[in-house]
Structure formats: structure tokens, C-alpha cells
């Protein structure tokens, strides 16, 4: 009997080992998050939410990340489409380049951006002349978020466009659609789920950005920087409710958007 059980276990050694290893990493992700969410009492969380500084930081985070995503959609989706439809020498290099922001330390990314968008540098000067400044300003937060998060959108959209059969566009052309109309009436509707999923990832990544924003725009303060500042200035007890609140809000938004994308997938 025992021998039989052992044999069964032995036969599933691989499955069991992988399951156990997987369980460790799942706990590693879950436990800190859960502990964080439940470590502050609901009343404390509510009080924290009523603080003007906290509310404005969270609001600023959400909408700058949204702005960054909007810019990403406008400029990244066309690039994704171009990459999905064309072959050219150096394409691999371009594709690798797009993913570089994911791998560089984000403080370094912030410094790099400063070197272009700072007031004494080329793009900084050009934008300054039309009244847009980046350092310690909302546009700085947006470009910092854009830089580190747009690869998620471009990659996801590119994969989506690659799955759309080119022949569908060709048929659309023969049916009287211009290249633009073929894109908007065929390719885009067929790819929207990938673009939407990429946008959600990009937005979420933007909300969570700290390093690059820290360098470009410590003020106005976004939520991750507020958490950092409270930890530095007042200690863990003050940082915790803000951090919990941020995690809860992100989770709710993320779950909500994921379920929209999932519903689309089933339809």
C-alpha cells in the first residue's frame, strides 16, 4: 500500500516538484501584498484618503500615467504596426532598442531624460519656448513614465498586429478601402484587445514608476514618491497607510481592466 503511494508520487515527481517551487514564488508575491493591505485598519486607510496631500498625489499618479499611456497610444501603436508589417535591415536592432528602457536602472533613465529635456538641453529648450517645462513639472512626470512603460504597449500591439492576417487588409483594399480605412476598419478592430492589454500594462507600469520620476520631478509629488518621503521623514508607520492605499487602488483598477479584456476575449 505504502509502496504503491510512493510509486505514484515517484511517477509524478516532476509535477510535484514544480508545484512546490511554484508555490514558494506565489507566496512570495502574495504575502507581502496581503499583509500590506490588511496591516492598516480600514478607518486609518479612510483617514489617509482624506488627507489632501495623499489624495492629490494619488490623483496625480493616475492621470499622469494615463497621459503617458495616451501619448504611447498615439506614437507607439503606429510604430508597432510598422514593425509588424515591414521587414528591413536593422529591424532586430530597433526591436531590441524599444525594450532597453525595461532593462536599464530607472534612475539612470531619469538622468538620461534630464540630459535631453533639461532646460539647458536641446529638447528642453525647444519645449521651453512653447511654454512646456519638464523639470519639477507634470510634463516631466509624464515623459519619465512614458520612457519606462511604453515598451509594454509597443510589444503587445506589435504581437497583436502580427496576428492579423495581411490578406484581410488586402481584401479590404480590393473592396474599396484606402490603406487608412483598411487599418481603421480591419486591422485596428482585430487588434484592439492586444492594444488594450498593452495599455493596461503600460498604465500600471507608469503608476508604479519611481526612479525616473524621482530624478526629473520630485515635485509635484506622485504617490510612490510620497511613500518614499514619508518613510524617510517620519518612518514606517506613516508610510504604510499610503502604500496600502496605493496597492489597493492599483489592484482594483488592474482587476477591473483585466476583466474587461478577458470578457472581450471570450466574446
Amino acid at each position: 500500500m505504502v509502496a504503491q503511494i510512493w510509486r505514484q508520487i515517484a511517477a509524478r515527481r516532476l509535477t510535484i516538484t514544480f508545484l512546490l517551487l511554484g508555490l514558494i514564488i506565489l507566496l512570495f508575491i502574495f504575502v507581502p501584498l496581503l499583509k500590506m493591505v490588511f496591516s492598516s485598519s480600514p478607518s486609518l486607510l479612510f483617514d489617509t484618503l482624506l488627507e489632501g496631500e495623499v489624495r492629490s498625489a494619488i490623483w496625480l499618479t493616475l492621470y499622469t500615467a494615463l497621459l503617458a499611456t495616451a501619448v504611447g497610444l498615439l506614437l507607439g501603436v503606429p510604430l508597432a504596426y510598422f514593425l509588424a508589417r515591414h521587414r528591413f535591415p536593422g529591424k532586430r536592432f530597433v526591436e531590441a532598442l524599444i525594450d532597453v528602457p525595461i532593462v536599464v536602472p530607472h534612475t539612470a533613465a531619469g538622468v538620461a531624460l534630464l540630459f535631453v529635456f533639461g532646460q539647458n538641453f536641446l529638447a528642453g529648450k525647444a519645449f521651453h519656448s512653447i511654454g512646456i517645462d519638464f523639470v519639477s513639472a507634470v510634463p516631466g512626470i509624464v515623459i519619465a513614465m512614458l520612457f519606462v512603460s511604453v515598451p509594454f504597449l509597443i510589444d503587445s500591439a506589435k504581437q497583436g498586429f502580427e496576428k492579423v492576417d495581411v490578406r484581410l487588409e488586402k481584401v479590404a483594399r480590393t473592396l474599396g478601402a484606402s490603406p487608412w480605412q483598411a487599418f481603421f476598419r480591419v486591422s485596428l478592430p482585430l487588434c484592439w484587445r492586444s492594444i488594450f492589454a498593452g495599455s493596461v500594462m503600460m498604465w500600471a507600469r507608469g503608476i508604479s514608476e519611481f526612479g525616473a520620476v524621482l530624478i526629473l520631478a520630485y515635485h509635484p509629488m506622485i504617490a510612490p514618491i510620497l511613500v518614499y518621503e514619508r518613510l524617510e521623514e517620519y518612518g514606517l508607520d506613516y508610510a504604510l497607510p499610503v502604500a496600502s492605499l496605493l496597492i489597493i487602488i492599483c489592484l482594483l483598477i488592474f482587476i477591473g481592466l483585466r476583466s474587461i479584456a478577458y470578457r472581450g476575449e471570450r466574446a
Binding site: 488586402k170 481584401v171 483594399r173 480590393t174 473592396l175 474599396g176 478601402a177 484606402s178 480605412q181
Partner: peptide, 10 residues
Amino acid sequence: LEAEKRGIGF
């Protein structure tokens, strides 16, 4: 002539 103006069924 562009494809969309040729009036060809494919």
C-alpha cells in the same frame, strides 16, 4: 492605380 480604385473582386 490604387487597389481600392480598380474595382476588382478578390
